[in-house]
Design a protein around this nucleic acid. Structure first.
Lengths: 250, 250
DNA sequence: CTAAAACTGTGTATCACTTACACGAAATAG
DNA sequence: CTATTTCGTGTAAGTGATACACAGTTTTAG
């Protein structure tokens, strides 16, 4: 029941010594993880089974368990590996706001590449190399904003969370409508219609006002709805940080 | 494959007419959902199976399928019902910032009550009555901030996302350490130690700086770590909105 | 050298779970 | 009344995770 956290970290960081005896392994953890990511990328997390991954590699299901203690653990490593490769900026930070916005866009793009990463639950702070790389990438520019250490950490966590959740909704909707074979505009219209049908002014007065004003009506920007939510939110966070730091200095 | 979105919404809103023929149903959708929520609250989402819910009610597994098309759908309704009951303020909005912060705390509390709600993936905008109630509750105070309709929606989505994700991490960590039987301080110390071991200054310079400065060292506030991240982030968003609105009016 | 020890990939089996299907009982329409 | 519809149930199929023991492989102690 109580999973050894050490083992977990070792798996994530590839820090296990090869035993000296016994036959040479024909697989590696990274082979398995890569195969898993491939399957998940192409067929979704639902299609990911130990048997599916094993077939992908041409081995038996049970062979995987020599490298990975459980499917859950495998997915954990997959998550870390998929999130590897944030944009690496070097040199001086010119415009920290600009770089943070670029970081957000890059994170968004990563989730677009690996949408299954949004289906797996996250229940731990970043501990693997891939996730810490994203942390680092945000920290670099943000360190120029004038925050304390604790505030820096809070901000990064907050941004990581917001991006992930909004990406989850955005790609979820996208997938649903792709499956249903309707356009983005039709999908938005459907949402608008749903709200118009069920949101009554007595129970949901503020919402009803928005609905009646057409705030949920399909815009020309159909495909970018949630994307825009994110941009707006991120900019407000950055504004807020500037105002906060200015006030403290003031 | 292509699930009928209408059926989905009907289930969520309880909008289906009772057929006139046949025996009277001995169960209701809400009975089943309530039993599901009970199980999930006490034993987690993992323990939630159709058989477990059926046993809870004293019926056979298959009887549930007369009321719910699939387990996935059941969880969807459970999610909506669990998130019912946001704080209802009436009368004038006195201090919109204060009310938003109270709303965030209430949302946090709801997730604490139903932590399994954080394990289920969310892949759609709010469509059920419970989730829309939360939307409404945020909208009411926020409408006094001076934002456009679109900006209002973006802000609420952004906040919903951030709270959810940070709650997911916070309660995930909490659960893990409860299982491992260690204190919050020990858990924080473990994280700090992990970072100290693996974060090298070459690969993660900014992070390494924070680590060496003790930014991840256990604080006296141990139990409130992520909670604090959220507070800070939310306040920055609100600051940012004020600054943004002021600048536009400016 | 050789035998024991450690480790590999495999085959088999178990257990838990979702869900399809058909049956007999119950309720209503006409 | 009787035909129809819907209810709860029993049975069974299909999928998936993973425990366990086995046979072959490699290393090392002596």
């Amino acid at each position: 029941m109580a999973e050894d956290p050490r083992k977990r970290v070792e798996l994530l960081w590839g820090a296990s010594e090869r035993p000296s005896r016994g036959p040479k392994p024909k697989l590696t953890l990274e082979d398995i993880v890569a195969a898993g990511v491939r399957v998940a990328d192409e067929e979704g997390l639902e299609a990911l089974s130990m048997q599916r991954v094993a077939k992908e590699l041409g081995f038996t299901t049970m062979s995987l368990y020599r490298y990975v203690p459980s499917k859950e653990r495998l997915v954990e490593v997959m998550l870390d590996r998929a999130s590897d490769g944030p944009p690496v900026f070097t040199g001086e930070v010119r415009d920290w706001r600009e770089e943070i916005e670029a970081w957000v866009r890059a994170l968004w793009a990563m989730y677009r590449l690996h949408p299954w990463a949004l289906e797996a639950k996250v229940s731990a702070p970043p501990i693997g190399p891939g996730q810490l790389a994203w942390f680092e990438a945000a920290l670099r520019p943000l360190a120029h904003a004038g925050l304390t250490d604790g505030e820096l950490i809070s901000t990064v966590m907050f941004l990581l969370g917001a991006v992930r959740e909004l990406a989850g909704i955005a790609f979820g909707v996208e997938r649903a409508r792709a499956q249903a074979g309707i356009s983005a505009a039709e999908s938005e219209a459907g949402y608008d219609a749903l709200l118009r049908e069920f949101v009554d002014a007595e129970r949901f007065p503020s919402l009803a006002k928005l609905v009646s004003e057409g705030a949920f009506a399909p815009s020309g920007l159909a495909d970018e709805g949630v994307d825009l939510d994110l941009d707006f939110g991120v900019r407000r966070v950055l504004d807020g940080i500037e105002a906060y730091v200015a006030a403290r200095r003031g």
